[in-house]
Simulated assay, not measured.
Amino acid sequence: MSNDENRHSGSRKGVAVITGASAGLGRACAREFAKQGYDVGLLARGEDGLKGAKREVEEMGRKATYVSVDVADAQAVEQAAAKIEQELGEIDVWVNNAMNSVFSPVKEMEPEDYKRVTDVTYLGQVYGTLSALKRMLPRDRGSIVLVGSALAYRGIPLQSAYCGAKHAIQGFYDSLRTELMHDNSHVKITMVQLPAMNTTQFGFVKSRLPNKPRPMGKIYQPEVAAEVIAYAAEHERREYRVGYPTLEAIIGNKIAPWYADYVLAKNGFDGQQTNEPEDPNRKNNLYEPLPGDHGAHGTFDEKATYTSPQVWLSLHRQEILTGALALGALALGSLLTRNNRD
């Protein structure tokens, strides 16, 4: 059965590919797309987490397949895309989510740290997009979601490699979006900017900080962002911003970047660390995945929220606008009726 026949039968919406699907936000995205009716192709390095994600998708009644792959390897990503289409069918949605980072002051960073984070976090999204476009452009349909961050607009201390990679993704996205518009392509593309989240990355990434790293500011559960990403795949906008802190950081930095400099210089170091000392010998996932199935959540469940009024308003803005127009029309009609009576 073709993808078009599947759509018409209502048996599924299509096939979604998630990179970084073994843990954290990618794991939450895999569940959310399965919930929305997609079969899911799962890409990541850690096979234990991939098996867990596959099991969860199948428990929700959808098909899943996984490929253990390093997204920094363009050929491996292309081979994974071919395998997924062979097993699940044509790819309808591609979510570029895989990332890596190093918590460290710039003065303590090594050149290879920057290269590795850039290869995974930036070029991994480029390679995924190229494999998606190779399939979507000839069909003139499909949706690509680039997972960004408030840090794509505003760099912060101790995460220079990650901030640089996210800024690069933003530039790549701007270029590609305008090219697709120029070509009148029906392939959709959007970027979702994230807030601080309670994901596994804070126990995974390489760190040179004296204390254990933590998300800075208000913390959201990954399911909040996963819902937006799944929605974005079907409702194209230029950009989605998850959570009020993301909106505040992006707009605030455009208005007064000098003030953000001051605030982050004062609060950005302690704000990204807990009071618990870090083990300098802790294993990290910069070059190799950590064994085990770690799920979607990190260690900050007690501080994280599952809700965001800003997200709800963003995802329902059409209904809100329609309701406001209807109320306005009723009010105007009532006023005119009263004036006619007078």
Rank of each mutant, 00 (worst) to 15 (best):
E5V: 13
E5F: 13
R7Y: 12
K13V: 09
V17G: 01
I18G: 02
G24P: 02
E32G: 07
F33H: 04
G37H: 04
L42D: 02
G46T: 05
G46E: 00
M60A: 09
R62K: 14
V67F: 12
S68R: 06
D70G: 08
A80F: 07
A81K: 04
E85G: 01
D92A: 12
S104W: 05
K107W: 14
E108T: 11
L123R: 09
G124R: 04
G124H: 00
V126W: 03
V126R: 01
K134I: 07
P138H: 14
P138C: 10
R139I: 06
V147G: 01
S149I: 04
L151D: 05
L151M: 14
Q159P: 01
A161I: 02
A168Y: 07
D174F: 12
L176S: 10
L176H: 07
T178H: 15
L180A: 09
H186M: 13
T190N: 10
V192P: 04
L194T: 05
P195L: 02
T199F: 03
Q201P: 10
G203D: 13
K206W: 05
S207Y: 00
Q221W: 02
P222A: 06
A225V: 01
A226V: 00
R237P: 06
R237I: 11
G243V: 00
Y244G: 03
N253W: 06
K254V: 06
A256P: 00
Y259M: 00
E278Q: 15
R282D: 08
R282S: 12
P289C: 02
P291W: 07
H294Y: 10
H297S: 14
Y306L: 14
Y306Q: 06
Q310D: 09
L315V: 11
Q318H: 14
L327K: 08
G328H: 00
L330R: 10
L330E: 11
G333D: 02
L336W: 13
L336S: 14
R338Y: 14
R341I: 11
